[in-house]
């Protein structure tokens, strides 16, 4: 049987995944996946590695995750009560919210006048980063392993030595007239 601690960690992970999936949504990992809402095709922030990134000690947000999840659930309960939503008692409250409600709540938490805005924005930024730059992995490894975010963005691969070079890079012709008063040093007058 799962220990209390393991169960708690699993619940916490679900809350973070549900948050990350609201930032950059992806497809469900299986029919029982409650954390990922499944509103989009392909991997989103969760498949991008949001949990690994959030838990990376280098990021600085890891020590706050416990509190973040407790608060997020608390806000979710309030939000559900205020909007007349029924929450599944077997799921953490935030996970129990449908995608639209998760979105509305995150918009509220990150709005300029929210007192804890900085924390929620920080959390969202890390989730975004997991998808669009995968800073918990070496970028060459992320590309080689088919990282969903970098792949979706069409991020080009490096040369075999792991460095990027673009030998063909220019339309090669003049495409506008320079400003008439450009000085002899090429600067504005």
């Amino acid at each position: 049987m799962e220990s209390d601690e393991a169960a708690e960690h699993r619940m916490r992970t679900m809350v973070l995944e549900a948050f990350a999936d609201t930032i950059i949504p992806g497809e469900k990992r299986g029919p029982d996946d409650a954390a990922i809402a499944g509103v989009d095709v392909g991997g989103g922030a969760v498949a991008g590695g949001a949990i690994d990134l959030l838990e990376d000690p280098a990021g600085g947000i890891a020590p706050a995750l416990e509190t973040i999840c407790v608060e997020l659930d608390e806000y979710a309960r309030e939000h559900a009560a205020a909007t007349g939503l029924d929450l599944d008692p077997d799921l953490p409250p935030f996970v129990g919210l449908p995608f639209e409600a998760r979105t509305a709540l995150i918009e509220k938490l990150t709005s300029p006048d929210h007192p804890d805005k900085q924390m929620w924005v920080g959390l969202a930024l890390f989730c975004n980063m997991a998808f669009d730059s995968a800073p918990h992995m070496h970028t060459v490894d992320a590309l080689a392993s088919g990282h969903p975010g970098l792949l979706a963005m069409g991020y080009e691969s490096p040369e075999p030595d792991g460095l990027w070079r673009f030998p063909t890079f220019s339309y090669g012709r003049q495409l506008a007239d320079p400003h008439p008063s450009t000085t002899s040093t090429g600067s504005p007058a």
């Binding site: 220019s170 339309y171 495409l175 506008a176 007239d177 400003h179 008439p180």
Partner: peptide
């Protein structure tokens, strides 16, 4: 101009199209 990367070229072309100037 012959060494201006695509993105710079695109901006220059859009400026030109809008009757604006653009400099490397």
């Amino acid at each position: 101009w012959d060494r201006v990367p695509y993105a710079g070229g695109l901006f220059a072309a859009a400026c030109h199209h809008a009757g604006r100037t653009a400099n490397p």
